[in-house]
Amino acid sequence: MPEVKLTAEVRTEFGKGAARRIRRAHKVPAVLYGHGTDPIHITLPGHETLLALRTNNALLSIDVDGTSQLALPKQVQRDPLKHTIEHVDLVLVRRGELVTVDVAILVEGEAAPETLVVIDHTSIPVEADATAIPTEIVVSIEGLRAGTQILAKDVKLPEGSTLGIDPDALIINITGAQSEAALEAELAEAEAELGIEPTINEDAETPDEAAEGESSEESTNSEQS
């Protein structure tokens, strides 16, 4: 994974007021820590940081006062409405250091017809070199039939990476899709268990009403002829 270089400024003001001023200047408050060092409170450029963190597990090269240090995003706080970054926690890493991170599962292809794809894990923990962390793991379900299960040990990892989860953990389960009648029966059973009365459409005609209507229509036609 290529490093993304960001130039940081040391932060000397703290608190909500200071954080708001930093964001108004289109910058991001952050903290850099790890390896037994004291936390360093810094400010990052807003736009560049936003672009860098679009990549999962982005490896950042943070330049602070002319000294560059490698770091991984540990926690990213985002504004749910503006989709801007509010704060970033960064953890220091070294080249050659093994780290465990959650890597997203990317499902490709389409399973066999009349199947249902159940994804039990959208990401899995993986141990890898800090400078070679995969951004995603691709899993193909093309043509897989009902009854197929993909376990963690079946997932193909990039060279140098190892699983950080039970090898027999279920990742993806391919099951048979339920028919509409089966779904309705299951819903009716669930409603019965909860004591919910079936909904009756008062506007719908009963079989007797429908037959009576047809008989009346036939009589009218006979009178007209």
Score class of each variant (00 low, 15 high):
113 P>H: 10
113 P>L: 10
113 P>Q: 11
114 E>T: 14
114 E>L: 14
114 E>W: 14
114 E>A: 15
115 T>Y: 07
115 T>C: 11
116 L>Q: 08
116 L>T: 06
117 V>P: 11
117 V>Y: 02
117 V>H: 03
118 V>N: 11
118 V>Q: 12
119 I>F: 02
120 D>L: 08
120 D>N: 14
120 D>F: 02
120 D>V: 04
121 H>R: 09
122 T>L: 05
122 T>F: 01
123 S>L: 00
124 I>H: 11
124 I>M: 08
125 P>W: 06
128 A>C: 05
129 D>M: 12
129 D>W: 04
129 D>Q: 14
129 D>H: 10
130 A>G: 13
130 A>Y: 03
130 A>M: 11
130 A>I: 09
131 T>V: 07
132 A>H: 10
132 A>L: 06
133 I>S: 01
133 I>D: 03
134 P>A: 09
135 T>L: 09
135 T>H: 13
136 E>N: 07
136 E>S: 08
136 E>T: 01
138 V>L: 06
138 V>N: 04
139 V>S: 10
140 S>Y: 05
140 S>T: 12
141 I>S: 13
141 I>T: 13
142 E>A: 11
143 G>P: 10
144 L>P: 13
145 R>W: 00
147 G>M: 02
148 T>G: 14
150 I>N: 03
151 L>N: 15
151 L>Y: 15
152 A>D: 15
152 A>Q: 15
153 K>N: 15
153 K>P: 09
156 K>I: 04
156 K>E: 12
156 K>F: 00
157 L>C: 07
159 E>V: 13
159 E>K: 15
160 G>K: 08
160 G>W: 01
160 G>E: 04
161 S>N: 10
162 T>K: 15
163 L>Q: 13
163 L>G: 12
163 L>E: 10
163 L>F: 03
164 G>C: 13
165 I>L: 15
165 I>T: 14
165 I>M: 14
166 D>Q: 07
166 D>T: 02
166 D>A: 06
169 A>R: 09
169 A>N: 04
169 A>Y: 00
170 L>R: 11
171 I>G: 13
172 I>P: 13
172 I>W: 08
172 I>D: 14
172 I>N: 13
173 N>T: 10
174 I>S: 04
174 I>P: 09
174 I>K: 04
175 T>W: 00
175 T>L: 00
176 G>W: 03
177 A>S: 06
177 A>H: 02
177 A>Q: 08
178 Q>F: 00
178 Q>S: 08
178 Q>K: 08
178 Q>V: 02
178 Q>L: 05
179 S>R: 06
179 S>M: 01
181 A>K: 11
181 A>N: 07
182 A>D: 08
182 A>P: 02
183 L>Q: 07
184 E>H: 02
185 A>M: 00
186 E>K: 03
187 L>A: 06
188 A>N: 07
188 A>V: 04
188 A>W: 01
189 E>A: 14
191 E>N: 09
192 A>C: 06
193 E>Q: 14
